[in-house]
Structure formats: structure tokens, C-alpha cells
Design a protein around this nucleic acid. Structure first.
Lengths: 334, 334
DNA sequence: CTGAAAGCGCTTACAG
DNA sequence: CTGAAAGCGCTTACAG
């Protein structure tokens, strides 16, 4: 492999001069710089990342802590991993995937061995045990999600509370007072995933505030029974004029269930939801919905993390990304 | 940070002795070993991965080259990234995610800077431009998929040809002679993705061989029109007694389209397909189908790559994983 | 069974 | 504007 020494020799300068030419950390004469660039070009030199990391104590690598729970919605998670990777690349960081089932194990491994400069935690729970693992590490971390047992890590997430309120207000403004709220299976709540809880609580509170009568339905965790359970729930609330949907499973089944009952949207029923492109692209869902904006969330998270790597004493922040609703004509005034 | 020198000092031995105790590369007296272990425990020592990589020229890291094309099916890709990561971990390797839109750029970057010991290529095309980038690198690579412009890299994939033949034979044995073959949108074929081509060719050849009359239908690339296009295709082939489905979009729409036409499976129509858990879990598809087995494919690929890292002169191999059909009762004899 | 020393490929005070 | 040298934290011949 060609080293900085080879470049120095070819260019007839010292290694430190090559190093400085590369980093731009001190002025180099035009002539010298040109000889160095020529040498780099001819020898096809690329700095050894490991050696640089050893010398500088910076790996330019972020650990992405993403336990592969089999029960969660895959496309959504893929959106986030891709978005984090791209946000990191844009700031010249690489991403190490850490998929250990126990996130703490993975965090310990990559931080203690100095493989990463910081970690990004996906799939955050309200009470997330990985937070202590990050606090025990030399490197900082950022949550994509909001935890309640967190007083030390920066967090970024969609403002799911506001998203819930926004959906309720949207329906309320159209005059809907009888609404069925379809949310994720109980199992998701029991898994303590923060966003399902926060959205549900906000929806309940806001509905109470605006005098909306809400029937809460949990999607079935078993896809085999999901559609029929959904159908029964709808039948049980014939007075409802609108659906507020925050569940991937229900979104999958809804077009078929409604079509089977000859229910037209929005003529017979208004529908508002929350889902992203990755989902809409596969299913082509015609529902007015809030965008989860994973790119924005990931970009903020990575920037926050890299800022903190640069300065550990920055104040801890929680950034909630404002939800945006995309109108698709699935709701109407009553 | 605590270094091997701190451990050596605490244990009262030399750094080389600690290093050898850690690697097990030479015999250490019981007493010395115990002092060292005690020192490691007390000081909470973990070796610096970068320093080790510099000294040994091995990073214990694999690059996962996965261009984030927005138009492909996300859950399938996530299955593979997770499977590769887990297979690598099992053999004590970490995984660096390389999501550059141009895979060649990413390969160049991580190999030239010695960030990885080898690369795993996902989303392989029949004519894959990344292969030359790998050949130009010092580190070896493995394809998850089969390319036609490849004479140097190991490859692992599901045997999609055999999968296609298996589906045809399954229907032929049940007496079906009029079959509609629904495959991916033209755009996927134009993207040159090997597996869609190989399966289609095998289905066509095998159908000819067994005297089956095949109507080939390409799924619509636009999810908005997909279901109605699918419905029209079915209407256009009233003589068909079976469907052979190799398209994610069609699988999403099929339950609804069939239910709208009051077509029962398998009473009115037999259906055979190819899809994995990740998909079945979300949609609960009741169709007899071939398993794509991403875990098996990824495990083989990673093992092959690590073997080759150990010995670059191993013969180049292509491993095709035998397809397995899972019976779900969606086909019947005619 | 153990240690002193060189080396992996960088960066960065220090000196000029 | 440039260079010689030390150091980052490991491993591994070499020597005993």
C-alpha cells in the first residue's frame, strides 16, 4: 500500500509537509503543493483511515444502534437507517451498523474499542436501557426518538404529540364529532415504543379538549385476523364519520375493508393518518396524512451528534420536528 | 483511555506478554495470566480497534454496499442488510454501511482508505459496474446476486432459475395448462436486476418444456394503477386456472382484486408465488410460495468472503441456494 | 515462559 | 514556508 512516506519521497518533501498539504492546516507554497498533488495523483495515494484515527483519536465513524426486532415495521426502519447513513456521509462520517439484539452489548463493544466517535440510537423506548450504556461510554450519543429516562442525551424526533393533535383538529374543524381512532396493536404499546404512546395520549387529550367523541381501537397483532377485526370495529361504530389511523396494519387492510363494505372515502367516511413515502409508494394510499420526515429527523440527529462530538459541553437538547400534513382529499366537512 | 501499557504495568509484565495473553498466540504461565486478567478487569481494558487494525492490517470490518434506490422493495432489502450484519457479527466482523448512490464511489472510498477487509454487494445487476471497482481494490468482494460480467468475485444467491421452474412444475403437476405469470414492472427489468430476469426466463422455458400456455403480465410500476391493471389482466385471461406471481406489487393488490371479483383461492384459481416472512408478516399472504431465505444467502456470502480474505487464491465460486417451497394450500389439482 | 524494540501509517507540537 | 522527531496503541519477529 502506498503511504504518506511514499508521497513525500516522490515529491521530495517531508511527511509532515504532505500531511499539512492534505489537511490544509498550514500554508504550503504553490510549487510544493503542486509537486505533492502530482505525487498523490501518480501514486494514487489515499490516507489510511485507521492510522489517521489512531493519530487523531477520531474515527470519523458513527455507530448506528438498530436492534433488528422482527415485529416492527421494516420499511420505516429502513428509511431511518438510510437517512442516517446519508446524513452522516454528507458530513464526512461513515456509519457502522450495530444490530446486536441487545443494543447495550453493541454500544459497549463499539465504544470501548474506540470504533466510533458517537452513536445514534434507533427504535427508542420510553424507558430505554441503552441510555445508561451510552452514558457509561466515552463517546456521546443521540436518540432518534424521545425517552423518559433520559437526562443526558440529545434527542430528535417527529413531534408525535403535535401530530396527534393536528389530526384531531383537522377533523374537528371539518365538524366531525364521532371518530374512530385506530392505533397500533397492544403489543407495540407493551414494547414501550415512545411514539405510539405519545401520539395516542395527545389524540385522547385533544379530542377531549375539542369535545370529540373518540372510540379507540387497537389493531390486531396477527395479520391473519387484522382485516376482520378492523371490519368488526368499524361495524361497531356506525355513528362514526371519520377515522384517525395510526397503525401500519390498518393502513394495509383499510382499502380492502372499506371497498368490501362499499364505503367511499371521503363521501361516506373521512380518513386522516400518518405514513411516509416508503409506504405510500408501495400501497399508494389515498389518505390525507402527516409525513414522518425521516430525512429531516436523521439530518438533525446526525448534526446534533457531530456538534456534541466537537464540544461535549453543549447543553442537552430535544428537537421535535414539526409535523406537516399532506392533503390528499380523504377528508370532508360534515 | 486505558491502554495495553496500563494493563502491563498493573500486572507487572511487559506489553508483549499482555498482547500474547489476549491473543493466545503463545503460552503464558497460569500465574501471569491471572494477574493480567485481574488487571484487565480492574482497569476495564478493551483493545483499541484502530491500533490493532494498524498493526495487523486487518480491520475486522466488512463494507456493505447497498445503494439506496428509492424504487425497490424496502423490506426485502432490509432483510438482507440485517442478515449480512448478523452473519458478520457471528464471525466477529463489524459492518460498515456504504449507501452512496454510486456504489463504485463507496467501494473506492472504503477500500482505498483500508476501512474494510472486504465488501458485500447487494442489489446486483446482470451487468454490474461495481464489479470492476472491486477488482481494482486490494480487498476482495462477494456478490449477493449473480452478475454476467463477473469472472472474479464469489457470488451467492437464491437459485431463482430453479425457483421459477419449481413453481411451473408445481402447477403443471396439478394439471394446470393455462397460467397467468405476473412479474415485476418493466422498470425493474430495465434496471437489469438479475433475479427478475433469471426467474422469468426459467419460467418461460420450463412452461414451454411442460406444454403450459403462459400469459406474461408485467405489474404496473405506478401503484395507483396497479390494482386496476391487474384486474384487467385477469379479466383478459378467463381461461387461466392458475397464477404464478413474482411481483411485490401484485401480491399487495391480489387479495383485494380477487375478493372484488369473488374469486376464491384455490377453488376458482390456484396461486403460487415467491415471498418472504418480512412480507408475509405484514400482509399475511395465504399463498403457497418459495422462501427467499435471506439469512441463508447472507450467511453463505459472508463466510465465502471471510474465507477469501484469509486466502485470496481460493477458486472463485457461485453458490446457488436451493429454493424451498412452503405449502399454504393456495393451489389445487384441476 | 517472558521482554525490549521495531514497526504499522498517520498527526502535531517543536524548532528553524 | 518546511523538517525531524515523538507519539497514537497495538503486534510480532527476535532474543533470551
Amino acid at each position: 500500500m502506498v503511504t504518506i512516506g511514499d508521497v513525500a519521497e516522490y515529491a521530495g518533501v517531508s511527511r509532515s509537509t504532505v500531511s499539512h498539504a492534505l489537511s490544509g492546516k498550514r500554508p504550503i507554497s504553490r510549487e510544493t503543493r503542486e509537486r505533492i498533488n502530482e505525487a498523490i495523483r501518480v501514486l494514487k495515494y489515499t490516507a489510511n483511515a485507521g492510522a489517521k484515527a489512531l493519530a487523531t483519536s477520531k474515527t470519523s465513524t458513527l455507530g448506528l444502534i438498530v436492534p433488528y426486532a422482527p415485529d416492527e415495521f421494516a420499511p420505516a426502519r429502513l428509511q431511518y437507517t438510510g437517512a442516517v447513513s446519508e446524513a452522516a456521509r454528507a458530513l464526512d462520517y461513515d456509519v457502522l451498523m450495530v444490530t446486536d439484539v441487545d443494543g447495550r452489548t453493541g454500544i459497549k463493544r463499539v465504544t470501548e474499542s474506540s470504533r466510533v466517535d458517537g452513536v445514534v440510537l434507533l427504535n427508542v423506548k420510553r424507558d430505554d436501557e441503552r441510555i445508561d450504556a451510552v452514558k457509561a461510554a466515552r463517546q456521546p450519543g443521540v436518540l432518534i426518538g424521545v425517552a423518559e429516562n433520559n437526562d443526558a442525551l440529545d434527542s430528535v424526533d417527529l413531534d408525535f404529540g403535535e401530530a396527534g393533535r393536528m389530526m384531531v383538529r383537522h377533523l374537528a374543524e371539518l365538524g366531525h364529532t364521532e371518530v374512530v381512532f385506530i392505533t397500533f396493536p397492544e403489543t407495540m404499546f407493551r414494547q414501550d415504543l415512545g411514539f405510539v404512546w405519545r401520539l395516542r395520549e395527545a389524540v385522547i387529550d385533544e379530542a377531549a379538549a375539542v369535545g370529540m367523541s373518540l372510540t379507540i381501537v387497537h389493531d390486531s397483532a396477527d395479520p391473519k385476523e387484522r382485516a376482520s377485526a378492523l371490519a368488526r370495529s368499524l361495524d361497531a361504530s356506525p355513528e362514526a364519520t371519520a377515522l384517525l389511523v395510526h397503525s401500519v396494519g390498518a393502513l394495509v387492510d383499510l382499502p380492502m375493508v372499506l371497498s368490501q363494505r362499499d364505503v367511499s372515502v371521503p363521501a361516506d367516511l373521512s380518513v386522516v393518518s400518518l405514513f411516509g413515502d416508503e409506504f405510500g409508494a408501495m400501497l399508494s394510499l389515498p389518505y390525507t396524512a402527516i409525513e414522518p420526515s425521516p430525512d429531516l429527523v436523521a439530518t438533525h440527529a446526525v448534526r446534533l451528534l457531530i456538534d456534541r462530538i466537537g464540544d461535549p459541553d453543549l447543553p442537552v437538547v430535544t428537537e421535535l420536528v414539526a409535523p406537516v400534513m399532506v392533503e390528499r382529499g380523504s377528508t370532508r366537512a360534515i
